[in-house]
Simulated assay, not measured.
Amino acid sequence: MATVVVLDDYQGVALDSADWTPITDRFDVRVETEHVADRDELVARLRDAQVVVAMRERTAFPADLLRALPELRLLVTTGMKNAAIDVPAARELGIEVCGTTGSGNAVAELTLGMMIALTRNFAAEDAGVRRGGWQHTIGPGLAGLTLGVVGLGRLGIPVSRLARAFAMDVVAWSPNLTAARAAEHDARAVSKRELFEQADVVTIHLPLSERSRGLVGAAEFSAMRPSSYLVNTSRGPIVDEAALLDALRSRRIAGAALDVYDVEPLPADHPLRTMPNTLLLPHLGYVTTDAYRTFFAQAVEDVVAWADGRPVRSLD
């Protein structure tokens, strides 16, 4: 019987999030709940798999890994984009790569939640109460603050909309953003420099590319005020990590809320783990029960369609 391997099911919920019987009747299904970082170990676990279901970008599939998996014929990723998969190499090797639709409003909701938790020191106050303490910090409300949205696109637009509901002013910058386009979403288009100078909270919503890698660095942190905050729910390498650490240590900025990192999972000895002026989440932007139901239901559909010789949701 052919084998399907589901990778990186950290919460152990993949098989409960959809009806897998159309697959389990025809395939041997194996679920990996721990991230396999070692390449040789990963190859060993996937060597007999004809189908792999990957959770977003948790496990990368570069060309050399794909070449080491001669049995692999279908690679399903949750979401319709995955920068961690070498799609051209997969196609050259005869591996079909397909995906599922997105995660709804989950990222926008998380972004606003992180803003409030960071500025009002929820994590520190929760820890204080558990230690027997009471009220140690103070922070601003969001109403009247200026939110700077870096990337007013598919994810930045709903963030802007929610921010306006919290009575925030919104300024935005994207490489090709026009004043008219920003105004359609109750935002004011500004230059990149102006955004970092004016914003009380900067939130990043650009895809990772060679153009956006390191986009936020020492110059941007120098432009920010000591009372301002950074939120990144996009991709870690968009922010220069060394510059961020320096800005946090020197209190060049008030704090940072991060859901994404250069290396994921975040290494146990990483200096961000000891920075007091941070809110650190483990890449939860898309991790909701409704998103997982969509992800895995459509992954099942993709596998069945492929097995039946029907078209699948091919990646761009």
Rank of each mutant, 00 (worst) to 15 (best):
V53T: 07
V53Q: 14
V53C: 13
A54I: 14
A54W: 02
A54H: 05
A54S: 15
M55F: 13
M55T: 04
M55L: 15
R56F: 10
E57C: 11
E57I: 06
E57F: 15
E57L: 08
E57N: 08
R58M: 09
R58W: 10
R58A: 12
R58N: 08
R58V: 13
T59K: 01
A60Y: 02
A60L: 00
F61H: 00
F61T: 05
P62T: 05
P62F: 01
P62I: 04
P62L: 00
P62A: 04
P62C: 00
A63E: 09
A63F: 02
D64S: 02
D64E: 14
D64F: 00
L65G: 02
L65D: 05
L65N: 04
L65I: 03
L66H: 01
L66K: 00
L66G: 07
R67G: 07
R67P: 01
R67M: 02
R67F: 00
R67D: 01
R67S: 06
A68R: 07
A68S: 14
L69E: 12
L69S: 03
L69Y: 05
P70A: 04
P70K: 02
P70Q: 12
E71S: 14
E71N: 09
E71I: 03
L72T: 07
L72G: 08
L72S: 03
L72N: 03
L72R: 02
L72W: 07
R73P: 06
R73H: 10
R73L: 03
R73T: 10
R73E: 11
L74R: 00
L74Y: 07
L74S: 04
L75R: 03
L75H: 12
L75V: 10
V76S: 11
T77P: 06
T77W: 01
T77D: 04
T78H: 11
T78W: 01
G79R: 04
G79E: 06
M80L: 15
M80N: 14
M80R: 13
K81R: 15
K81E: 14
K81Y: 12
N82P: 11
N82D: 13
N82F: 14
A84F: 15
A84T: 12
I85F: 15
I85L: 12
D86H: 11
D86E: 09
D86S: 05
V87M: 10
V87N: 11
V87W: 09
V87I: 15
V87F: 13
P88W: 09
P88I: 09
A89V: 07
A89W: 09
A89Y: 04
A90V: 11
A90P: 05
A90W: 13
A90T: 10
A90F: 13
